[in-house]
Design a binder for these strands. Structure first.
Lengths: 169, 169
DNA sequence: TATTGTTATACTCTATAACTATA
DNA sequence: TATAGTTATAGAGTATAACAATA
C-alpha cells in the first residue's frame, strides 16, 4: 500500500509493447495490408495462397488432409478449392481406391501463379522486417519458426496417407 | 530450364515455415486459443482488454483517440465501451471544453479486472514461448517489438491532446 | 463546413448442421 | 456406422453510410 498506484505513470507504448498478443496482432495486420495487395488476384486471397502453397509443395493430398494441415474447416476448403479450380490453378481428380475422396493437384498455371505471388509476398516480408538488421532478420525468423512450430504440423501422417495414393512423395 | 521443377521435392513444413505470414498467423491463433479463455469474462474479449489496457495505462483520452490508438473504427469503439461501461469497468465523462467528446476513464474495478486478465495472459504468453530458452524469449520479445513498432503509435499526439483536458498525464 | 459519437446496414469470415455418396 | 465432400444457414467481426449534436 505504500507503493504508488500501479502503472499510473506508465506509458501506453510500454503497456501495449509488453502485450505479446497486441504485438503479434499489429505485426500480422501490418503484413496483411501489404500481402492483401499481392494476393488480391488470387481466389480466396491469402488463404487461397496457403492452399496453393500446400498443394504445390507438399505431397499430393485430399481436400480433408489439406484442410487439417492448414487448420481450416473442410467446408471452407470446398469454397477455396472451388475458386482456385475455376481459375485453373488446381485440379480435382478422383482418388483411385476411394471414390469419396478427391485428390488436389496444382496445375502448371497454378505453380507459376504460386511463384508469382510468393515473390510479391517476399517483398512484403522484406518491408516488414525492414527495421531489423540482416542478422536480426534471420534470428527473428528462426525464433518465430520455433514458437509457431509448437502446434506441430503432423506432416508425416499426411504424407503417409497421400503415399497410399501416389508414390512420388 | 535445365533445373528440375522448382520445389517439387520440398517439404510442406519448409514451405509454410518460410512464409512469415503463415508463421505469424499460426502463432497468433495459438496464443488466441489460450487468451480467449483468459478474456472470456471481459466484455469485448481481447479487444475489450486492449481498450482497458489503453485506458488504464495511457493518458486519459477520448473515444476517438483511443480508437485511433488501437487501430479500431470509432463505431466499434462505441460498442466496446458500451459493454465495458455496463460492466462498471470504465466510465464515460464529458470533456470540459468540448461537449461533443467523451472522456474515457478506468474505474477501480476496471483497473483490478485489467490486472487480473493481464496476469492470466502472462501465463498464456509463458506457454506460447515455452519452446524458447529464457534468453531467446527476451530476444524474441525485443525483435517482435521492433518489427511491430514500425507502424508507430503516435502516443505523443494523444498525450498532448489529453493534456488539454487533464494535467495528471 | 468539419468533428464526435451513435445507430443502422451490409458484407466477410467462420461455425454448425444436414445431406449425398461412398466405405 | 463412419468418412469425404457439398450445401445451406446462422453467428461474429468488420466496414460503410447516415444521423444528431457540437465546434
Amino acid at each position: 500500500m505504500s507503493q504508488p498506484v500501479v502503472d499510473r505513470g506508465a506509458d501506453l507504448r510500454d503497456a501495449l509493447g509488453a502485450d505479446i498478443g497486441w504485438l503479434l496482432g499489429q505485426t500480422l495486420r501490418s503484413y496483411m495490408r501489404m500481402a492483401d495487395g499481392a494476393a488480391q488476384d488470387l481466389p480466396g486471397g491469402m488463404r487461397g495462397y496457403q492452399v496453393l502453397t500446400a498443394a504445390a509443395n507438399g505431397c499430393v493430398s485430399t481436400q480433408l488432409s489439406l484442410a487439417r494441415e492448414l487448420g481450416l474447416d473442410r467446408t471452407v476448403m470446398t469454397h477455396l478449392i472451388d475458386g482456385l479450380e475455376a481459375a485453373g490453378l488446381i485440379q480435382r481428380t478422383p482418388v483411385p481406391g476411394d471414390r469419396r475422396a478427391k485428390q488436389v493437384a496444382v496445375t502448371d498455371a497454378g505453380r507459376a501463379e504460386w511463384q508469382r505471388v510468393r515473390d510479391l509476398l517476399g517483398r512484403a516480408e522484406d518491408h516488414l522486417l525492414d527495421p531489423l538488421s540482416p542478422d536480426d532478420r534471420g534470428a527473428f525468423r528462426t525464433l518465430l519458426r520455433r514458437v509457431a512450430g509448437q502446434q506441430k504440423l503432423d506432416v508425416g501422417a499426411m504424407c503417409q496417407m497421400a503415399s497410399e495414393v501416389r508414390e512420388d512423395c
